[in-house]
Amino acid sequence: MAGSEITSTEYIKHHLTNLTFGNHPVHGWSFAHNAEEAREMGFWAIHVDTMFWSLGLAVFFSYFFYKAAQKASSGVPGRLQNFVEMIVDFVENSVRGSFSGKNALVAPLALTIFCWVFLMNLMDLIPVDLLPYLLGEHGLHIAHFMRVVPSTDPNVTFAMAFGVFLLILYYSIKVKGVGGFVGELTGMPFQTDKLWLKPFTTVINLILEGVNLLAKPISLSLRLFGNMYAGEMIFILISLMYSAGWVMGIFGGTLQLVWAIFHILVITLQAFIFMTLTIVYLDMAHAEHH
């Protein structure tokens, strides 16, 4: 829907700007009118579109599963229950396969992550211009900016990964104790009996293990963010073709179809990877190495 008066760059930029509400140094608490204003708001700003869609999807997921859980019985399951149980069974198998400890949190955590990430990714399959158009200037006039795929917002992926990271730290310390955890960070992989060598190995180990530890949440969040951002970017680039004549339009339509079908695999895979890695990281946090 790139109108004749805006350029491709503006079109892409518009699509990549969140609906931001925050404290602007000049305008005070208000919605940002463009990307620059959003940046100037600094930390004290909130992406309303991201919050709306992610919370909406999470509420949808919670309500859906809560309803199924309320009606769950050991009798013959209905369709809803069958579907929900299929997912639960899948998650439970994944947890049982990767997580050796005993923790009542891990499986529900994995289920939440899988379903939530999947639903957020699923928003990517809605044509990129549909919702912004309906809610924007030409439609309901609600919002100037609208990014409907929450997992393309690094805030979302970093928040999830950070939550997992906190759990990793919590369970590492809970299971191994502070001493055990510090020992794990400093006593590996280089070990020595000579006292004068100890400080060197400790520092090197701390650097290596620290990177190892920090890489977990960063890789977790960047992998999801990167995949979804790139996927969305390609959808946006494809939709640029619609403004370049009907030949390009048909070609773009075909491309969009192909990319969307391929993307079904990507969004499922990304949700699965996020869940599996969370389980694995928590399993490592529970494991005694020595």
Binding site: N18, I46, A159
Partner: peptide, 30 residues
Amino acid sequence: MNINLTLIAQLLSFAVFVWFTMKFVWPPLV
């Protein structure tokens, strides 16, 4: 593309939804 308050809000809602799943969804289903 900016990191801002959304991060904290998302973190809190993530915690709430995990808690909800753990309390009301997972046990009856399993």
